[in-house]
């Protein structure tokens, strides 16, 4: 099984996504007839990927700090 990302990294981005959704909900309009079937899901996947990518760097930074601290203990 691939390693699961720790929960705390999810919370903040997911909250941001939720606020984004609320903003979109407020400006909702009818879906157009010719909407490409996969388009919405693809954009959504990329939006989540962007946020997870931020989480990735955040994890790297915290790991770096932990490693720096490590030898001194």
């Amino acid at each position: 099984m691939p390693k699961q990302p720790a929960k705390q990294f999810l919370n903040l981005p997911m909250r941001a996504v939720f606020l984004m959704a609320l903003a979109m909900f407020a400006t909702e309009r009818e879906a157009r007839a010719y909407t490409d079937p996969g388009t919405g899901a693809l954009i959504w996947q990329m939006a989540v990927a962007g946020l997870v990518g931020v989480g990735f760097y955040f994890r790297r930074i915290t790991a770096w700090f932990k490693n720096r601290k490590g030898p001194k203990d």
């Binding site: 959704a21 979109m24 909900f25 879906a31 909407t35 490409d36 919405g40 959504w44 939006a47």
Partner: peptide
Amino acid sequence: AMPTWLGGKHKQ
């Protein structure tokens, strides 16, 4: 919901 909203707003 998100795929529907995002797909609806995307320039075709």
